[in-house]
Amino acid sequence: MRVVAAMSGGVDSAVAAARMVDAGHEVVGVHLALSQSAATLRESARGCCTIEDAGDARRVADKVGIPFYVWDMAQRFKEDVVEDFVAEYTAGRTPNPCLRCNERIKFAALLDKALALGFDAVATGHYAQIVDGRQGRELHRAVDMAKDQSYVLGVLDADQLARSFFPLGDTTKPQIREEAAARGFSVAKKPDSHDICFIADGDTKGWLTRRLGEQPGDIVDTDGTVVGHHEGAFAYTVGQRRGLGLKVPREDGAKRYVVDVQPSSNTVVVGTEDLLGIDLVVGEHARWCGEAPVGELRVGAQLRAHGEEFAATAVAEGERVTVRLDARARGVAPGQSVVLYDGTRVVGSATITATDRRRSASG
């Protein structure tokens, strides 16, 4: 098969590309330029898409003996991921930009361009597995649960899975680094990227404030009492405790958390920890990694990347899914994603639009 190997400049995508060559495919390495003003050097493990990263990817491609190209997708990334991120926070929601990037860039824009150029598939360094099942290719968790990335791939549909390869899913991260060193790759010990790639310093609040400007407002208790002030409700998320700067402590000394963000009034609502527990999740924009489920089904529900999996019952109705958790989850924010599993198989995902409590904490 003719395969485009997405090469970020890191160790994972380097080994993934090499493994595709070893498997006998005709491979071309592609680095996605996603920044309109890429930094020359990486300052830390945060961020990506620097000129240094592109150079690292090119050196690996030369070592493996495959052609290498840089595809400029900065404008598409800005529109589909960065601007979506800002709009979601402005609306009081907490998005996961990695899911949006996978959905709209790596497995939409990249795959579409690859197919248009006559390639058959795309390979990436994600930690996940594709298994041939009775109804076609299935997406499963990786062997290395500490690195499993199936959650952020839950937006892929059956057609995209049919044209995707994840060569690292059966291997642990330490083994990948050992393999990279054995192959003579200079990136064998390169630190992993983490957090939001386009916020290199990790300061999401500061980044949003620079984009949106300060928008002072009140932080109120659940009874409406003003207990503090903020410079922009967009910088807060449900479940947050640090950085609230509350001026009025509770009489009982209990810690308070963000329990609601109300963009219409530019208000942040705080309350006690018990108010964070929810057991009902409603999601929209459902994406199914295969045939859409019919009726009620038992699933495992994961509510954040690398978060725990909750036993649950899901009911799908078109692009809407309702998930009833067996136990309460804490600090779930609208805008995050719920990804549904059947054992290790990814059933699909949806963007959380609402949460609630169906019953008392005691059951």
Rank of each mutant, 00 (worst) to 15 (best):
A5C: 08
M7L: 12
S8K: 04
S8N: 07
D12M: 05
S13G: 06
H25W: 09
H31F: 11
H31S: 13
Q36D: 15
A39V: 08
L41P: 10
L41W: 15
S44I: 07
A45Q: 14
R46E: 04
C49G: 12
A54S: 14
A54M: 13
A54F: 13
D56W: 11
D56Q: 14
A61Q: 10
I66M: 13
I66H: 05
W71E: 03
M73D: 06
A74R: 12
F77Y: 15
E79R: 15
E79Q: 15
E83T: 11
D84T: 15
E88G: 00
G92H: 04
P97I: 01
R104A: 06
I105D: 02
L110M: 13
L110I: 05
D112H: 11
Q135H: 14
A142E: 03
Q149C: 09
S150T: 08
Y151C: 04
Y151A: 06
S164A: 14
F166D: 00
P167M: 05
L168K: 04
K173S: 05
K173G: 00
Q175E: 15
A181E: 14
R183S: 03
R183P: 07
S186Q: 13
A188C: 09
K190L: 12
S193W: 03
S193G: 15
S193H: 12
S193Y: 00
F198Q: 09
I199W: 09
A200Q: 06
D203N: 15
T204N: 01
W207Q: 08
T209R: 12
P216D: 03
G217N: 02
V220S: 01
D223T: 13
D223M: 09
V227N: 01
V227T: 04
H229Y: 09
H230C: 06
A233G: 12
T237W: 12
T237A: 14
T237N: 11
T237M: 10
T237G: 14
G239C: 08
K247S: 15
R250H: 09
E251P: 02
D252T: 11
V258S: 00
V258F: 05
V269G: 01
V270Y: 02
T272R: 12
D274V: 08
L276N: 05
L276E: 10
I278D: 00
A286V: 12
C289N: 13
A292N: 03
G295N: 05
G295L: 07
L297H: 11
A301K: 06
R304G: 11
A305G: 11
A305Q: 13
E309Q: 11
V321R: 03
V321H: 06
A327P: 00
G331R: 00
Q336N: 13
V338E: 01
D342K: 13
A354E: 14
R359M: 10
S360E: 14
S360H: 14
